[in-house]
């Protein structure tokens, strides 16, 4: 699949900063189209993007790599977004990290669960363009 710092399909219109200055984002998303899209957008915007396709892979990456912010889908295989959130919040090393729930699920119960666990934002994907998501991420990674 994709490389961690994949530059996406299109030619980026911006210059990419040097690796050490780049903010590191972990994108946990199981839909390949959306994964590709957000990956490309954030890479174009100069972020270093790590991707995970399910909750377990996401957890593994969180433990192995240094990450500044997590974009978390909720309906993901192996370990659900809610369960992954629980694990993150239980881990003293990770619990302060900004987390943006990026999901298309707006089931009242799940939404309450996720919010109760303490995410910084709960975004419905279809309500935002990738650029708008980037704007929101910038609030947490200035």
């Amino acid at each position: 699949m994709m490389q961690d710092d994949s530059q996406g399909l299109g030619a980026p219109a911006v210059t990419i900063p040097q690796s050490q200055d780049r903010k590191k984002i972990l994108l946990i998303e199981d839909d390949p189209f959306l994964l590709q899209m957000y990956n490309d957008k954030f890479v174009n915007e100069g972020y270093e993007v790590n991707v995970a396709h399910d909750g377990l892979e996401g957890l593994k990456m969180l433990n192995e790599k240094q990450v500044d912010l997590v974009l978390l889908d909720i309906l993901i295989p192996k370990l659900s977004g809610v369960d992954l959130l629980t694990k993150i919040k239980e881990d003293p090393k990770l619990q302060k990290m900004p987390i943006i729930a990026l999901t298309n699920l707006s089931n009242v119960k799940e939404e309450q669960d996720v919010k109760a666990k303490g995410v910084n934002e709960y975004l419905i994907k279809s309500d935002y363009t990738p650029t708008q998501v980037v704007e929101i991420v910038k609030k947490y990674l200035p």
């Binding site: 980026p12 699920l105 279809s126 990738p130 650029t131």
Partner: peptide, 30 residues
């Protein structure tokens, strides 16, 4: 439950269409 899941399934492709179209419009592809 059905409506909630149906909405989820409808939203995913919509997100991709909206996202890619906006990226092309905003110059991500030149």
């Amino acid at each position: 439950e059905f409506v909630s899941m149906a909405a989820h399934e409808l939203r995913s492709p919509l997100t991709a269409i909206k996202g890619y179209v906006s990226m092309i419009m905003e110059g991500d592809t030149g």
